[in-house]
Simulated assay, not measured.
Amino acid sequence: MKKTIIACTVLLMTATAHAQFNSVPSGGNKRASVSEGIGITQVTINYSRPGVKNRDGHIWGEVVHKGFADLGFGTSKAAPWRAGANENTTITFSTDVKVDGQPLPAGTYGFFVAYDPNESTLIFSKNVSSWGSFYYDPKEDALRVKVKPVATDKSVEWLKYEFTDQTPSSATVALEWEKLVIPFRVDVDLVNTQIASFRKELRGSSGFIWQTWNAAASFCVQNNTNLEEALLWADTATSVSTGGTLSFQAWSTKAAILDSLGRGQEAIAVMKKALPYGDVNELYFYARNLAHLKKGKEAFDIFKMDYDKHPDEFLTNAGMARGYSALGDYKKALVYAQKARAQAPDILNKDRLEKMVKSLQEGKDIN
């Protein structure tokens, strides 16, 4: 009896030591965390990494039990696998997401797997503070999805999570261990989450400068969404209160929104107001866009305005070459292209001008 009490005391002291000190993880299982952004959504997984440890061929279906099992401890009589080691694995989504097409609100979840070689069940639980799955309760499930495990030739010694197949609004999260991958797809509503973030941030300190209002408005016009509210944001960006009254960027964003709303004449008027505020680069790239859109006369006028303000400079000579090319006057365009080539500040620009000169000599448009 006395030995039993002493043994229990030692176990308690050991558990307490692990709780109080930064010690080696139980069983040598490595603690790990992986985080990745999907759009503006941050996905973070905290877990411990068990090793195969010469148990090849005995992990899936043995070390990782199939389905739900009575683990002989805790309150759960039908527990899934903890999807890692030691404390239960957790996954955090900073915004609402969809997991394999099913909605899941923003938050932190305990992550469990009911393994089956044909179709595993992934469980996102509201329980995030337990040790393993000994206290798993299906009543705490926030979401279950079924996925197909994928066998691989390459063996992974230490369990890990990776993000693959990334797009601006999605990624595949892959649990990899031994010769098996359990993947699931995470999708975010990039546009709506970004707009919701803008609305929140513009009410804080970010709302005191024109650049943030312009960034929000510009995002909307680029994605052709939320244009009416974007116009209000553009109005604020060009106001005295935020300091954007002399900003070419802010005024041109407003013009683009008006154009997208079908208010073309108002857009033209706003751009006329914006032009005097443009610097050499802003005017050049605005004119380039017009030339690309086959608006030759409008493009030439802006290139000429830029040249008149900054005569005989590399960028404005290149602009005049593009302007005359947009009008179909390749002979005059060639003169300015050759001037710009001689003024090229680096090899990259020199090579670009060489190509422009060659195209113009062959009677081809360079826009």
Rank of each mutant, 00 (worst) to 15 (best):
V181Y: 03
V181A: 06
D187Y: 08
D187A: 01
D189G: 04
D189E: 09
V191E: 10
V191L: 11
V191Y: 07
N192F: 08
T193G: 00
T193H: 04
T193L: 04
T193C: 01
T193N: 12
Q194H: 06
I195K: 10
A196R: 01
A196Q: 11
A196F: 02
S197T: 14
F198Q: 04
R199T: 13
E201I: 03
E201M: 12
L202K: 12
L202Q: 11
L202F: 05
G204F: 07
S205R: 04
F208T: 14
I209T: 15
I209Y: 12
Q211I: 12
Q211F: 11
T212R: 09
T212E: 14
T212G: 05
A215N: 15
A217S: 13
A217Y: 06
A217N: 11
Q222H: 12
N223P: 03
E228Q: 14
E229D: 12
E229Q: 10
E229F: 09
L231S: 07
L232W: 04
L232G: 06
L232N: 13
W233C: 02
A234Y: 08
A234R: 10
A237E: 05
S239R: 07
V240K: 14
V240P: 00
S241A: 14
T242A: 11
T242V: 07
G243E: 12
G243L: 09
G243F: 04
S247H: 10
Q249G: 14
A250W: 01
S252I: 00
T253N: 09
K254E: 04
A255D: 08
A255M: 05
I257G: 08
I257F: 03
I257T: 08
L261G: 00
R263W: 05
G264N: 04
G264T: 09
A267W: 02
A267L: 00
I268N: 01
A269K: 06
A269E: 15
V270F: 00
M271N: 00
K273L: 14
A274P: 08
L275Y: 14
P276Q: 13
Y277Q: 14
G278D: 02
V280D: 04
Y284M: 12
A287R: 01
A287M: 03
N289F: 00
N289W: 01
H292F: 08
H292R: 08
H292E: 10
L293H: 06
L293P: 01
L293G: 08
K294D: 15
K295C: 07
G296R: 00
K297A: 13
E298N: 07
A299N: 08
F300Q: 10
F300D: 03
D301G: 09
K304M: 11
D306I: 07
Y307T: 13
K309P: 04
P311D: 14
P311Q: 13
D312C: 05
